[in-house]
Nucleic acid binder design. Structure first.
Lengths: 230, 230
DNA sequence: TATTATTGTTACAAAATGAGACAATAATGA
DNA sequence: TCATTATTGTCTCATTTTGTAACAATAATA
C-alpha cells in the first residue's frame, strides 16, 4: 500500500468549551455554501500520536497550545456513516469527491475530546472547507451533522461528572478569578443555581485554591479576593 | 482499494472482570510458544458497529451474550507501535507475517472496553493464535505485551469511579446475592475494607435493591436475605 | 435448651451540608 | 464627613449524612 498522510477510517472531533456572558459555549464550524454545521475535527497522521493530533488541530483553530484536553468517547456505530454529507461539503467547495477525496467518503470512527479554554484567549479560525468557526451557547446550537449533537451531549455530561472530581472549572477562566466568577462557571456547567456560602466553603475546603490580592472593581462594595488553582 | 473484512489500524481490547475467591480477576490470553500474555482483543468489521464488534468477540471468548460492557478509553500513542511483537506471535503460529498478514504489522489504535461478568457463567476459550485464556487476579498479572498493563490500570481506575455512580457491582455476581457477597465485591474493587453496617445502610438507601427470600447456608447462625438489583 | 456465629436494625456521636445572619468593606452621594 | 448601598467573607445553628458501636433476632449445633 502506498504511504498515506493520515490513518484511514479514523477521525477525531473536539468539543471546545468556553465561558462568556455567564453561558457555556462551544466552537462550531459552518461549511461553505451548505448550511451544514459541525464540530471542529480532523484526522490523525499515520505516524502521529492520537492525543497530539488533537492538540495540533486545536492549536490551528484556537491559536492556543497547552490547553486542557480530555478524551471522553469513541463513536463507532454504522448509523453515523453518511457519505453523502461529506460529498455535499466537498462539492460545495468545488471538489469532485469521488475523484479527489475518495477516502473522505469512507466510513469513519471518531474519537471525541473536550477542551476547556479561556474564552478571551481565543480567536477562532475556520479551516479550508469552512466558512466560519464561531462560539455558540450550548443551549442554542444549530442543527449539527451526523451524530455531532449526541457527541456534544455526552461531552456535557462527562464534563459535569468531572467537574468536582477533577476540579477543572478553573480552566474556563483566566489564571486569576473571583469566587463569584468560579461559581458562575459551575452554575453554567451544572445548569443549576448554587448557594453562595456553601459553594465558597466547599471550594476553599478543596485546598486547591490560592488566594491573591483583592480585585477593586470601582463598584460601591467590598472588593473580592482573586484566586487561582494550584 | 479491495474490499477488506476489517477496518485497518483499528483494534479493540477488553478487560473482562470476574470475581472469585474474594478477588478481582481478569481474563488474560497466552500466545502459543511465546510466553507472551495479552488482553483479549480483536478487530472491527468494515461494516460492523464498534460496540457490536466487542460484544461479538466477548461472546466468542466467554460464551456469554448480553454482558455489562463499557468503553473507557482509546489508546493511540506511537509508543505502543511495536510490530515485532505481532510478528513474533504470528511466526510462533507457523505463519509468515510479511507475506500472510502484513496488515497485522501496521500501527494500531485500540479502543478499550471493560466487561463485568458472573465468574461462574464463563468457560474461557482461547482463539486461533492463543494457547489459553485464563483468569488472573488483578494483583498477580503476568507481564503483558505493549501497553496492556496500562490499559488494565486505567480499567480498574474507571471501574472504581463508576462503582457508586452506576451501581455496577452486582454485575460481577449471580442474579441474587447476599449483602456480604456484594460487600466483598466492593472491597475487592476498591482494594479496601468497608464497615458492614455503613455499607448495608448505603446500599439499601440507593433504593435499587430488591429483597428476596432468605438463604439458608446450613451454618449455625441467622440466614441472610438474598438481594437483586432492580 | 444453652451456645455460637452472623445478620438486620437501632442508637448515638461525629462530620458534612443547608440556610441564614452578620460584620467588613469600597465606592457613592447627601 | 458620614450615612447608604451592594457585595464579600465568615460565623452560627439546624438538618442531614456518616461513623461506630450496641443489640436483638435467628439457624444450626452441642
Amino acid at each position: 500500500m502506498a504511504e498515506r498522510a493520515f490513518l484511514p477510517h479514523l477521525a477525531y472531533d473536539s468539543v471546545v468549551f468556553g465561558f462568556s456572558g455567564d453561558e457555556l459555549k462551544i466552537l462550531i464550524m459552518e461549511y461553505h455554501n451548505t448550511g451544514l454545521f459541525a464540530l471542529p475535527g480532523g484526522f490523525v497522521g499515520s505516524n502521529e500520536d492520537l492525543d497530539l493530533a488533537v492538540r495540533r488541530g486545536l492549536a490551528e483553530r484556537t491559536g492556543l497550545s497547552d490547553i486542557y484536553l480530555e478524551q471522553f468517547h469513541a463513536f463507532g456505530s454504522m448509523a453515523r456513516y453518511k457519505p453523502e454529507v461529506m460529498a455535499t461539503i466537498l462539492q460545495a467547495n468545488g471538489h469532485n469527491p469521488e475523484r479527489d477525496f475518495p477516502w473522505m467518503l469512507d466510513r469513519f470512527i471518531t474519537i471525541a475530546y473536550y477542551a476547556l479554554i479561556n474564552y478571551k484567549d481565543v480567536v477562532p479560525k475556520p479551516d479550508a472547507l469552512s466558512d466560519s468557526c464561531r462560539w455558540y451557547p450550548v443551549k442554542e446550537l444549530p442543527k449539527l451533522i451526523l451524530d455531532h449533537e449526541g457527541i456534544v451531549e455526552k461531552a456535557v455530561l462527562t464534563l459535569r461528572e468531572n467537574l468536582d472530581r477533577k476540579l477543572v472549572g478553573g480552566n474556563l477562566l483566566p489564571q486569576r478569578f473571583t469566587m463569584k466568577e468560579l461559581q458562575h462557571v459551575y452554575e453554567a456547567i451544572l445548569d443549576t443555581k448554587l448557594r453562595r456560602t456553601t459553594f465558597q466553603r466547599a471550594m476553599l475546603a478543596t485546598g486547591r485554591l490560592k488566594r491573591h490580592d483583592k480585585q477593586y472593581s470601582g463598584k460601591a462594595h467590598k472588593a473580592p479576593y482573586l484566586y487561582s488553582f494550584t
